[in-house]
Amino acid sequence: MPHTLAVQTPEPGIRLVTLQRPQALNALNTELLGELSAELDGAEQDEAIRVVVLTGSRKAFAAGADIKEMAERDLVGILDDPRQQHWQRIARFGKPLIAAVNGYALGGGCELAMHADIIVASEDALFGQPEINLGIMPGAGGTQRLLRAVGKSLAMQMVLTGEPIGARLAQQAGLVSEVTQPELTLERALQIARRIAEKAPLAVRLAREALLKAMDTDLASGLRFERHAFTLLAGTRDRDEGIRAFMEKRPPEYQGR
C-alpha cells in the first residue's frame, strides 16, 4: 500500500489518486513520485481503468519539490536522481489523465499538473515555477510544457520572475480548461472523467494520441496520423456499436474492439 497516496475507484473505469503529504503541502519527494509512477503504471496495465483523476488537498495540489530532500543531495546525487526516472514514467502514461487542482501548484506541482491532459482548477489555485528563486530552473518539463501551454511571453515571465498566476489567467492562457469553486473542483473533474470513461476506449486512445501529436509535429505529419487513426477506427466493432446505438436511441456498450 502506498504511504503518500490515497487510491480509490469511485466508479467503474475511473481511478482517483490523491496526493497525501499534508505536512509538506504535498511536496514531491522521491517516495511520492515513486509511488505515483508505480500507480500510473498499474492503471495503464489495468484494462478496466479508462481514466485517472489526480488531485491533492483543498490547500495544495502540490507545492513543489521537497526542498529539504533537495538540500541533502550533492551534484552526484542530482545527476543520479531516481526522481528523474519517476518523472519519465509519469510522462509516458498512456491513458487520459485529469488534474483537479486546488490551492498551490508550484514548481514540481505545476509540472505534475501539466502532465495531465485536462486541468480543472479552483478559483483559488495558483500555478507557478518559482525555481529561479532558489538559483535553479524547472527540471521536470516546466520550461517545455509551460511554453507550449501559455505561449512564450507568459512562460518567460513566470519562469524568469518566479511569480505565480491565478486560475483565471491560467484559463485565459490555455493552461486550464475550467475554473470552479474550490468545493466543486474534484466533483467536476470526476464528471469529465465519467464522460470520457463512457466512450469507446480505442477511439479515446487514438484521439488523445492525435491531439498530442499536434503539439510536437508539423501539420502534414499530424494530418497523416489523424487519417491513419480514423481509418483504423472505421474497422472496429465499437464503431459499429456506436452507430447502431445512435440509430436505436440507446446508450452504446463499447468493448474496446
Rank of each mutant, 00 (worst) to 15 (best):
I67K: 12
A38S: 11
F230K: 10
P201A: 09
E253S: 09
T143E: 12
D66C: 11
T4Y: 03
A60R: 04
L112H: 11
T55M: 03
L223W: 03
Q157G: 00
A170K: 07
L134P: 00
A173H: 04
P252L: 02
P130A: 08
L175G: 07
L154Q: 01
Y104N: 10
H115V: 02
I192T: 12
T180V: 04
A63F: 05
D218E: 12
E178Y: 10
A140H: 13
L25A: 15
L40R: 06
K199I: 00
A125H: 11
D46L: 01
G141K: 06
V120F: 08
A220G: 01
P138G: 07
L154G: 01
Q23A: 15
V150R: 01
E47Y: 00
R239G: 00
G103T: 04
Q20M: 08
G34Q: 04
A6R: 14
L97S: 11
Q191S: 11
G242F: 03
P10T: 11
P182S: 14
I165C: 06
P252A: 07
A99Y: 00
E241C: 04
I118Q: 09
A62L: 03
F61R: 09
R224Y: 02
C110F: 04
T9R: 14
L75V: 14
G242M: 05
A245F: 04
L5P: 10
F93R: 03
L79P: 00
Q20H: 14
L190T: 05
E163Q: 14
A170I: 05
P82G: 08
I165L: 13
R227Q: 14
R21E: 12
E131W: 07
